[in-house]
Design a binder for these strands. Structure first.
Lengths: 238, 238
DNA sequence: CGGCATCCGGGAAGATACTG
DNA sequence: CAGTATCTTCCCGGATGCCG
């Protein structure tokens, strides 16, 4: 007995994967139908800290082409993960934002990130978007290292600003205002920060090289960047 | 400047996606390079409770074709997630198993499953593999409902047997021996069990219909199947 | 039977060019 | 700037056939 032809149109056009489903009640399988297409999850990642315009989205996703981005935004909107919004005048431009349910995807990034960081093939020196860096702070934050400490750190990475607050064993991230932070870490590119937090590079070395600038309390900035731990790599079996 | 031909072998054959990478240090992006291809994560799901042969794997993944399964097993093996093993004589057949690091993927299924279960489009009445059902027990176990209780339940689903033990707020699953369980739940297909645990169907109704049989303490079986909760669906925005 | 190679049709991804 | 149109390349899925 053959499967019925699934190219039959008009069947749940809301679901992505162009009409190829797993026909599986398993939640993970359904998740893959929503976010399993190439780029889909990375689009969500880039929207995680707030709405973005098409062009900014495309710029932050190095390598995606406009038509693929359009398709993904359509799929994700149909799935209820992304919402298209028009900003109020005078800035009446269209932006894309995660829905509340889309926002709940943070654990997906944490779990995938922690698992893949143990991959023998993972290369943390590759380019890194600003959104990824902020997500990595929440994923790799090591509360033991920050025990008993607080910090209020601003980031200015290219044109984006983020504020990170640490206290009570938790780390909060928000896009936007950095006024009044104890220290502000400034860099043209996110990977420079990752090199310090994850690559063992001394902050002072990157400051000397001009890749990173710190305003305010440099001791706070230095301490803060030591509060993150990458998991050990897994063994590659014979 | 064109990309070099990526069918060119010898370029990190360890990584999947046939030579299309994200060039992104983000852990989630790297995870997608490993498990983001169609079927890859479901292959891992089917291996989660122990090694399987090619044919059993193919049978449990309704709809996969042999060549795609071969490719996925190759990719996953190259990535260090899956290991090919030869069972000792007399049963000297080849099986596929997760590596220790591959076993660490359980949180991925939990998080994806919990998130996707809230999808407005998720249909829990679709077919369900035995591995998925067992994974769903660990994902959707509601310790509050089982508070102060223990259970030791065997499952015989088609040709597979699993043993599930609940105690101290935790739920353990193991493939294999079910001798001495307090109750054994028998069904030809996993979805019958899901209909009780997640679909609100009374166990007695399925027993009457002959879809499920219980041996041993039926009260234990009935209680056990009430200890699981699906998350609420998210709102579909206008 | 288990596993792999090969061929084919359809469709998704990627690059480029173009339009409002 | 925000997408659409088009073309090419490559992946997915099915079928068949080989070889242990």
């Amino acid at each position: 007995m053959k499967l019925e032809k699934v190219t039959d149109q008009s069947v749940t056009p809301t679901t992505a994967m162009g009409g190829r489903w797993y026909h599986d009640a398993c939640g993970a399988a359904h998740a893959l139908e929503i976010v399993g297409e190439r780029w889909a999850l990375l689009v969500m990642r880039e929207l995680f800290w707030g709405p973005k315009r098409f062009g900014d989205l495309k710029a932050s996703l190095q390598g995606i082409s406009a038509n693929v981005l359009t398709q993904r935004l359509e799929s994700l909107e149909a799935a209820g993960v992304v919402q298209r919004r028009r900003l109020p005048p005078p800035a009446s431009v269209q932006v894309y934002a995660l829905t509340p349910w889309g926002q709940e995807s943070e654990p997906i990034f944490q779990v995938l990130g922690r698992w893949a960081a143990r991959s023998p093939d993972h290369d943390p020196t590759l380019p890194l978007s600003v959104s990824s860096l902020m997500l990595s702070f929440r994923t790799m934050f090591d509360a033991r290292k920050a025990a008993g400490r607080t910090a209020d750190v601003g980031f200015r990475l290219g044109a984006e600003t983020f504020r990170v607050r640490v206290g009570g064993g938790a780390l909060e991230v928000a896009r936007g205002d950095i006024d009044g932070a104890e220290a502000t870490i400034i860099a043209p590119e996110a990977p420079a920060i990752a090199a310090v937090a994850y690559g063992g590079q001394p902050l002072a070395a990157l400051q000397a090289a001009g890749a990173v600038t710190v305003e305010g309390d440099a001791a706070v900035a230095g301490r803060f960047l030591g509060w993150f731990t990458l998991p050990d790599k897994a063994e590659k079996p014979a």
